[in-house]
């Protein structure tokens, strides 16, 4: 399994309704994106981290491993903001206000990423997909996504085993061998994906498959208390940002 999904399946909030976690996680992301980065994004990031490491019980090390991926893009994407090209100061010069803009961007992106990670670390994708039909997503698209989600892990497992087998047969000792191994890996994965789909179809056809995948959705009631506390937290963050924005430099 992928680390984030594995953590979501064993999360303390696993049995909570996805709508509750969506309101909190996506609400925090929206706050991070729409509020002024200073002090808004800092407050949102602090609140999200507190929820993630506190009530949601997400392990700090797993969170850092997932968080450093978007952070890498943000840092790379923020570097061009430090420079200006072809202006009055020369071909390439330090941009006035560039560090401040890059810093604000880093704050906003880091804070917004934490909001989505809060949802991802507490809600398995398998809990969300079947409920999307009720949200208006066409059933065939949800069915395709469900099949994708189930096959992805099998293919990743196959990929890792084939890679090990190739390495054991000296498949990565030279550049040419690496290319051959990679091509074999891609082609074998394709063949296995289609083979898996055909076997799945044979199995489902024997059970009266009519084109619709019916899956049991774990029953969980929406907690009004959780929704109220989440809404209060979001409203508090917005209010505090607006107040601090006027008083801080």
């Amino acid at each position: 399994m992928l680390p984030i999904d594995a953590a979501a399946h064993s999360s303390r909030w696993r049995r909570r309704h996805p709508a509750e976690k969506a309101l909190l996680g996506f609400g925090l992301t929206l706050c991070a994106v729409s509020l002024p980065p200073w002090p808004g994004a800092v407050l949102v990031a602090a609140a999200t981290l507190t929820v993630l490491l506190g009530p949601a019980g997400v392990p700090g090390r797993a969170l850092w491993r997932a968080f450093r991926i978007p952070l890498g893009f943000c840092v790379t994407g923020a570097i061009p903001l430090l420079f200006e090209v072809g202006g009055a100061r020369g071909v390439v010069a330090l941009a006035p206000g560039g560090p401040a803009q890059a810093g604000e961007l880093l704050l906003r992106t880091a804070s917004a990423s934490l909001g989505v990670l809060l949802f991802a670390f507490t809600t398995p994708v398998s809990d969300v997909l079947p409920r999307l039909v009720r949200a208006g997503v066409p059933a065939p698209v949800v069915d395709v996504a469900l099949v994708m989600y189930r096959i992805i892990f099998l293919l990743l497992d196959s990929l890792s085993k084939i890679r090990q087998a190739q390495a054991a047969r000296l498949g990565h000792t030279s550049r040419a061998a690496t290319w051959r191994s990679l091509a074999g890996l891609g082609a074998t994965t394709f063949v296995r994906a289609f083979d898996r789909a055909q076997r799945l179809h044979s199995g489902l056809a024997g059970r009266g498959y009519d084109g619709t995948l019916r899956v049991l959705v774990p029953v969980s009631a929406v907690s009004r208390r959780f929704l109220a506390v989440s809404a209060a937290l979001l409203a508090g963050l917005v209010a505090l940002t607006l107040v601090l924005e006027r008083s801080l430099p």
């Binding site: 996504a145 099949v147 990929l159 055909q198």
Partner: peptide
Amino acid sequence: TLLLGASGAFTFVL
């Protein structure tokens, strides 16, 4: 549905 799901999974794994 199953073939498209497999195709999507292949794209993800690629």
